[in-house]
Amino acid sequence: MNRQEDSGSQDQSLARRQERVSRNEGLFRAVNEQLEGLNDTFAVQTDTFKIVCECGKSDCVEQLAIPPQTYTRIRSDPTLFFVLPGHQDRTSEAVVEEARENYVVVQKYPGIPAETAAQA
């Protein structure tokens, strides 16, 4: 394999990884939207509510506590996600907020990561 073919293969591999990570994160975001809906249904009013880490690992179901107003603010941008510190995927996203609480907010990179996140 020459250098050009090798580079193309790496690009495809990265693109597949970015898409998989974004799809997983989109699924966890859907879980959290249902969790938010449950708070409304059960009329739960608390300072924080429990969501699942929105990282790209399909087997991560760790949970974090988020103030409801912060959740609403971040959710309004489809390229932003809540993950536990250290759970960010460096090939797909950058940390844009580090809260004092036990979570960080990541933003998907433009291109495949952001486009897949917006479609999820």
């Binding site: 699924l27 879980v31 249902q34 969790l35 809906g37 059960f42 699942v52 399909s58």
Partner: peptide, 25 residues
């Protein structure tokens, strides 16, 4: 039944082709 309804919403989002376990409430 309320939790079941929420999980039905999650399953809709999970790809039909997904073979990995799905996170449910």
């Amino acid at each position: 039944a309320i939790f079941r309804k929420a999980n039905e919403g999650i399953e809709v989002v999970a790809s039909e082709a997904r073979e990995e376990p799905i996170p449910f409430i």
